[in-house]
């Protein structure tokens, strides 16, 4: 059984009457790449700031490997690496100098630190720019340096707040590739708005809304939760109009759109829909060019959860 890296119990944060986080509970298994999702203002950044000790919880508690965190204490800091949404560096330092500074805060020996800096600069692709002043770095480079500084002391947990939200597609891909490469080596807990990225690298996700846990499970289980699916049929020899007449009043149909020879259907009971459609195809001797059942995307599920349809 895997250990729990981060456990949050009934965590709340009240900002002068505004409840940013509302009795939130979650647990991040060790080694997981855990996606933290929610619309703007859902309380993601506040939650992450409470985990890293920058904000004091109003209620509840946070445990890291079973050790309860206290606001203002630096006791368990070595176990967590953190990258905020917009990391602020000292522009007058070079990347190499910054990493040396970050490492010296953990009192790493010079030899260990030099090896670690070399290794991390390679991982994040900044070896060639290591002696360039950070002030001249692009946003993507700063974000990659941010990941490197968060990993400087080899922490067990890496917490990333919107690591790709401000980046262009190239920068986004570079950062996501780095996060994907960390899977299995370190527990990654990261918030994001970009659901396709979360879907690609995460094995677990939690969706929060108004500071509350709406859904938390493995990506695989969450996909299976959704009974609603999209189907697409393309007819070889016509039949789309007959198809519409035959099924528009069926209980399993949510929507049907006919575009020429194509029918796009959203169904709420995939098994029943498949049985009835197959029977109709045989009975009417319909020839098909395409028959597609789309996998539910995290985006579909996210939208349903935040809109209260799930």
């Amino acid at each position: 059984m895997s250990m729990t890296a981060v456990r949050i119990e009934n965590l709340s944060k009240d900002f002068d009457g505004i409840l940013a986080v509302n009795k939130l509970s979650l647990s991040v298994p060790e080694g997981a790449v855990y996606g933290f999702l929610g619309p703007n203002g859902a309380g993601k950044t506040t939650t992450l700031k409470m985990i890293v000790g920058m904000t004091e919880p109003t209620e509840g508690h946070i445990e890291v490997y079973g050790n309860r965190l206290e606001f203002g204490s630096d006791k368990h800091r070595s176990e967590i690496g953190f990258l905020p949404d917009v990391p602020g560096f000292y522009d007058w330092m070079t990347a190499k100098e910054y990493l040396a500074f970050a490492g010296s805060l953990y009192k790493l020996s010079k030899t260990v630190l030099n090896d670690r800096i070399r290794e991390l600069l390679k991982t994040v692709g900044l070896t060639k720019s290591q002696n360039k002043k950070i002030g001249g770095y692009s946003r993507g480079m700063k974000q990659r340096l941010g990941i490197a500084q968060a990993l400087i002391n080899n922490p067990k947990i890496l917490i990333l707040d919107e690591p790709v939200s401000a980046l262009d597609p190239v920068g986004r891909k570079e950062v996501m590739d780095i996060i994907a490469s960390l899977a299995g080596k370190v527990t990654v807990f990261f918030s994001s708005h970009i659901l396709a990225d979360v879907e690609r690298v995460c094995d677990h996700v939690i969706i929060i809304k108004e500071g509350k846990n709406m859904l938390e499970d493995s990506v695989e289980n969450i996909r299976n939760l959704s009974k609603s699916r999209d189907m697409e049929l393309e007819f070889e020899n016509g039949g789309s109009e007959t198809f519409l007449d035959s099924f528009k009043d069926s209980g399993w149909v949510e929507t049907i759109n006919i575009e020429g020879k194509k029918a796009k259907i959203k169904v709420n009971d995939l098994d029943l829909a498949r049985v009835e459609i197959n029977e109709w195809i045989c009975k009417n001797k319909v020839m098909l060019r395409k028959y597609i059942v789309a996998e539910p995307t995290l985006e579909d599920i996210f939208l349903k959860v935040v809109n209260g349809d799930a």
Binding site: G53, D74, R77, N153
Partner: peptide, 18 residues
């Protein structure tokens, strides 16, 4: 300035007391 730029957060989330 460190609060304004956000550099304080990278330092205080390391093994550094206030």
């Amino acid at each position: 300035q460190e609060k304004n730029k956000g550099s304080i957060m990278l330092v205080l989330t390391k093994k550094v007391s206030r």
